[in-house]
């Protein structure tokens, strides 16, 4: 037996060493994936700086910051949903509903309400409520979030249309319009709203226990549960938080448009999710964060901006974003783990 033991200890070392190398390689690959979005950002920046006339200019610089503000607000909120391994497809409808509600509740040409900023807050809370309901149904009913949120998008879109009938309300409240029209240092107020919300999200993510619980749920839900985290509560809160962010995005859109039009949300879900994923937040949950979403939003915004400057066809532009999204997903998912949005 003693000879066999000598042999087995050696075996044990060989396979332990191999296994640890295997894990190290996986970790290294993960770390490389974290750098990839920054490289992409730098590369497209250089390409447009050389190839797109007017890309490097003070005017375009402010233009970019302006264009990225609303997508940043929405994508930041959605990031938390993706971090817990879920997905939120309700952006279009919820954003539209929040815009429509704001239009109807502030001074406008359709309703007698004139609630001013109180009306804006109600509209944001309604969006948060939509997120809460999506989370509640998805978590308690154990229904995949993509399905519930997709349905929620349709419900809220329909409800927004019904709320104002044929024509959307025109916003006459100048203080609400000021969110988009008043500029401080060449930038609209909603840019500063985006910055503040981003910082708030960063604090929630990095400075609170809940932020870490969100990461834990995305990585290993059952482990979080047996460690005493109220997983259901955190998940529902995340959906509600995303709803609030999307609601603010809707207000900013309506302020810019001057109408409480449901169309402020139309087509927003795709660039928002694309920004989250392209930035490097894993669709499987647990990896990434809002700082990565900032990079993703920059990539998507610069792409849009640069392609317009070189005079590319708008549909071509959408196609490019789609291709980049697929590349981002293909290179970041780990093929061993299950990739179903919970």
């Amino acid at each position: 037996m003693s000879d066999a033991n000598v042999g087995t200890i050696a075996h044990n070392d060989i396979i332990a060493e191999e296994f640890q190398t295997h894990i190290r390689n996986l970790d290294r690959r993960n770390r490389m994936m974290q750098v990839a979005p920054i490289i992409v950002l730098v590369v497209i920046f250089i390409i447009f700086a050389i190839g797109a006339p007017g890309f490097i200019s003070v005017k375009n610089f402010f233009n970019l910051l302006n264009q990225m503000s609303i997508p940043l607000i929405v994508a930041t909120g959605i990031t938390f949903v993706v971090l817990i391994g879920s997905i939120d497809l309700s952006v279009d409808g919820v954003m539209g509903l929040s815009g429509a509600m704001a239009g109807l509740l502030v001074l406008n040409d359709k309703t007698p309400f004139n609630l001013g900023f109180f009306g804006v807050i109600i509209a944001v809370l309604i969006a948060g409520l939509c997120g809460f309901v999506t989370g509640l149904i998805s978590v308690k009913g154990k229904i995949p979030s993509f399905m519930v949120s997709f349905a929620m998008s349709s419900i809220t879109y329909g409800f927004a249309m019904l709320s104002y009938g044929a024509l959307p309300p025109i916003i006459n409240d100048t203080s609400v319009r000021a969110i988009a029209l008043t500029k401080i240092g060449n930038l609209p107020i909603f840019f500063y709203i985006a910055v503040v919300l981003f910082v708030v999200a960063l604090i929630v993510q990095d400075k609170t226990a809940t932020g870490k619980h969100i990461y834990a749920i995305g990585e290993n839900e059952s482990l979080a549960k047996i460690s005493g985290v109220n997983v259901d509560k955190v998940k529902i809160a995340v959906f509600a938080l995303a709803g609030l962010f999307v609601g603010v995005g809707g207000i900013c859109g309506a302020a810019q448009l001057g109408r409480g039009d449901v169309s402020v949300g139309t087509g927003m879900v795709f660039p928002a999710l694309a920004a989250v994923v392209v930035g490097g937040t894993s669709l499987a949950g647990g990896k990434g964060g809002v700082q990565r979403t900032l990079i993703g939003v920059l990539i998507i915004t610069i792409l849009n901006n640069g392609l317009v400057l070189i005079g590319a066809n708008a549909y071509f532009k959408d196609g490019i974003v789609g291709i980049i999204l697929i590349i981002a997903v293909v290179t970041t998912i780990s093929r061993n783990s299950k990739m179903v949005a919970k």
Binding site: Y215, A216, S227, G228, V229, G286, K287
Partner: peptide, 11 residues
Amino acid sequence: NLTVAQNMFFG
């Protein structure tokens, strides 16, 4: 995906 300390006192 968390730090050693965050694991140590998780929950």
